[in-house]
Design a binder for these strands. Sequence first.
DNA 1: GCCGTTTTCGGCCCGACTGTTTTCAGTCG
Length: 570
Amino acid sequence: MGRPNDEVAELFQEFADLLSITGEAAYKVRAYEKAARAIGGYHEDVSALDLKGLRQIPNVGDAIAKKILDYQETGTIRQLEAVRAKIPAGVRALTAIPTLGPKKALVLYEELGISSVDELAEAIPAGRLEGLKGFGAKSEENILHGIELMRRAGDRVLIDVAMGVAEEIIAVLSPLAGRCEYAGSLRRSRETIGDVDILATADDPGPLMAALVALPLVAEVIARGEKKTSIRTVKGLQVDLRVVPPESYGAALQYFTGAKAHNVRTREIAVRAGLKLSEYGLFDVESGDLVVSRTEEEVYERLGLPWIPPTLREDGGEVDAAIKGELPRLVQLGDLRGDLHSHTDLTDGIASLEDMVAAAAAHGWEYFAITDHAPNLFMQRMTDEKMLAQREAAHALGERYPDLTLLHGTELNIDADGEVDWPAEFLSGFDICVASVHSLFTQDRATMTRRLVRAVENPGVHVLGHPTARLIGRRASVDADWDEVFAACARHRTVLEIDAFPDRLDLPADLIRRALRHGAKFSIDSDAHATGHFANLRYGVGTAQRGWLTPDDVVNTWPLDRLRAYLAGS
DNA sequence: GCCGTTTTCGGCCCGACTGTTTTCAGTCG
């Protein structure tokens, strides 16, 4: 488990789930959910705040603040323990089954004593649900199907997989639609995607729905209505297609982009202004007249807000920033002038130096760093001689590309104690040195923190590569006191990498926002091992945007002389 | 339980689809 804020947020989310099962009023459940999100995203450590400090957290009032004090003293919350005693954890787990929510979970528990997914999976074929109110044959079938899906863990997919599906579908539907775009978490550039939301406009949705269900990638039609059709692809990814009239496009795009919590905020603003916001538009409550709906910009403007970039729409302070006119000018893909981390076939890349440089030049970069692995990552079989020979080759090659400055660098290995491959003298021969953790991922927090800080303090290290070393869905982040690491980065002018590989996206967005508070700088790098990998930079930029970064925060948007001056001070 | 340029009380986002409830509750996003 991570920092105390995450633990407390998880406790309140659990409390909210359990309250919804016990039938507690919906507004109270929502209050705990809102508080959980606010606590999880709060910049100060809630385990160190007093009552007054806790009350400063949005959506945390007296009652919740006192529960946090309870947590500080006892490590748990009395009221949560009380409801845990009434509702077994397995009942909460039932609500993770699609089509099964809190109400039905409670019926199953109270009427049949079912308190786990496994028990439910056995009870249905045994006929134990027959005659139970609200559970017909179709419900049983849906539940069994849902359990099967859960067990296949077809859970969430990486963003590049979802993007591939979305672009394939949009290519087919676009000719039949006025407009057709992806919305939802994909448009917000979340690092994993639960389902793909496609929005299209048409006066007659029929042909679009028919075209979707006829696609070869469709394994199953989950729902098919006049305005919405849901399918599951052969790989288990759900796709929802919503079709709205052309004049509703802006309101619908705003609505289906979410996040849900962001929409709640915008709708509350609408309500206070005597307006009602839905996917069909912004309406005057009294007259029922449509006010605006054509574009997102119009909708936000009528609510008194500037247009808010989708990557910020997480109810993470963006609405308040918009009201105050303090939205950041987010970094864009087009702002990047170069790439500071890439590999060739001299180590584990699959393209030659020549091909990588040619691709970088074709990309229009002003500068490009080759950073093959250093000797201590033994499997890569690097030697001093090979590295120096590559430097020669790179310099010679550079002369063929007058508009591209080639930087010769390396990706150092941070060892157990935070030391790197070469002595200072050899390191000074490189234009740029990335340093990364590639082993011993499970060191305790104190050891890992010392290890990372030591690497960051090394004057020969310019960039801390994929800092958490996580692999999404496969390997957890290393455990470190990140505030200490980020403070060291700011102090020593060591850049934090945002590795754009879809299974890394490292630093993650929440840590980027924390590092930003320390005044650290960032680089959005491809970590390319092939020429095609430059395309991943879009996901790195999406992650940087989710971390609220501006071009000034990202060193590889800078002109080369400014970048060099910054790195020289590290 | 939280919150306040209409409020310290009375609100709290809105709509689509499914299944079975013959008029709507539950789930989902």
